[in-house]
Amino acid sequence: MLSDVLPVLTYEGAGTPGASVDARAKLIVAMAGTVAVVLATDPWQLLSLTGLVAAGILLSRLPPATLWRNLRAILIFAVIGGAVLVLTTGGRSWILGPFHVSQGGLALAARVTVQLLLLLLITTLVTFTTSPFDIAAGLRRLLGFLRHLRIPIEDMTTMLTIAITFVPIMTQEVDRFLTARAARGVGMRRLGMATVMGDLLAPLIESNLQRGEELALALDTRLYGYGPRTHRHDRVRLDGFSAVLILVVLVWAGLSLALL
């Protein structure tokens, strides 16, 4: 039940054009886009960046359903946040009943909402076209240089990769828990905090701890940490297309910011 509804970290876009682009390129491009969106304040800048993101969505064939599903999640926050901004910002305002609807507030709310949505779209593009494992691997390669600064980037990404493997297993566990309750005629409606804490979390944590222990054993028996590791060739090389992609995005984002 849950595993049908909760496609957490699933990589739906396998087979789409975006999937064959190297993860590193996508991460760089996403980073560039994010920085640009955060720095953009002017409507024209935002419009240009929206165009960039829209191009990304079209080229990667992101399905509207996925788009909507991800947007839906933050929509409520965007609406509440926007309302707060509108009603609390000072300056020139219209009176609407008991509320002061500030003009400045409206503009601010509009801008922040657009920025938020753009950031979300950028993230969605990455998670749609890249499996979580590839994201972790991409991070490892991009941040590999930190090794020389004594930051254990290798271990951190291994931990991240292993953590990702927990997700589908936990989803299954929660699924089975809900089914077990349903099998005894207890509906979903009564899933209160107390139940979640007591009946679900405790066994879930216990099984995760046990899994963690066995995984640690597996890492040890396979000699992890006993010496320097080999780095094999990347399956997807940073090719010409990726280079062009990075270049195009950097230029477009840069130009957008220059617009004023």
């Binding site: 499996s131 990702i164 297993i169 066995e214 597996a218 890492l219």
Partner: peptide, 10 residues
């Protein structure tokens, strides 16, 4: 219990 021994994605 292979789920507790496999550490990679692929």
């Amino acid at each position: 219990n292979p789920d507790n021994q496999l550490v990679c994605g692929v």
